[in-house]
Amino acid sequence: MKYVLSRLGFLFISLWAAVTVNFVLPRLMPGNPAILMLGRYKGQLTAQALHALKLQFGITKQPLWQQYVIYLGHLLHGNLGLSLTYYPIPVGQIIAQSLPWTLGLVGTATIISMVLGTAVGVYLAWNHGQFWDNLLSTVAMFTAALPYFWLALLLLYFLAYVYHWFPLAHAYSTGINPAWSLSFILNVLRHALLPALTIVVSSLGGWMVGMRNNMIQTLGEDYITFAEAKGVKKRRLMFQYAARNAILPSLTSFAMSLGFVVGGALLTEVVFSYPGVGYQLLVAVQNEDYPLMQGLFLVIALAVLIANFIVEMLYGRLDPRTRQGQGGAYS
């Protein structure tokens, strides 16, 4: 319980940090960049919207703490302002439209990649120093260094453009209407396959090598030898004794990798014009639509923080040492 509370506390502190970074950044930049933005959009905005934007980005005489309080108040009410690109649609609505696509694509692909990579890592460690281990751990060095978007471009070119095996862009064909029908779902899956493949291929190596190294470390522990001596069968030794322990540091490093993986995955969306938050983030940046950009950043941070929290809870369940509040993921 103590563990859950401390992780929950950390979730809120980091959330607050992300929110504050969002508030501080435009005000910190030399020559408030929002002034330029407002200059560009001035003619299209109502007086009320203009005033709100000025307040949101600190072009006002109000003291900073007051601005901060107002900003927090708006956030609590889910008010993220109006998008300028899609004026006058509220930022919240755009996020609501794009987030499901991202969660579906990036979330699924990341989970597949993690599970698959971990399983292969277990196998490689068990067969340490043999053919597949040597081959795959070296190949992983290269895939780990691949820029996501570049791999996405290549796959797009060869598998979609040259060979027409996959659609070129978007989450579903432009001709059909979204509906809970089989044909629509299949259409969506067909569109998601290539971006998902990109994400899985580029992140698989990291999970794999991480688990492999942890597992090799664990296989050298006394309790493995002791279990082997007392006659525990191979399968049980491999999973219940070795992998079960080796996965703990893997989960800990999840926090470190997730931000990286998500960042790369967002770029994959850009390449495939996939209508998720990553694609919208690029649209916002290109149009200097700062309210939209801020909102998207917050929601991405929130998603990552919550995913991280879920993994920590999982860690707590898997490691009995955290249940007493001692040791654990972040001690």
């Binding site: 970074v21 435009p26 931000g259 990286f260 998500v262 950009m293 950043f297």
Partner: peptide
């Protein structure tokens, strides 16, 4: 340590995108 952990979990690339978008 808390600061480090916060910095770790805030997604880096989106943060960089936001910062560089402001800088122009």
């Amino acid at each position: 340590n808390t600061m480090t952990n916060i910095m770790l979990v805030i997604p880096g690339l989106p943060l960089l995108i936001v910062i560089t978008a402001y800088i122009h």
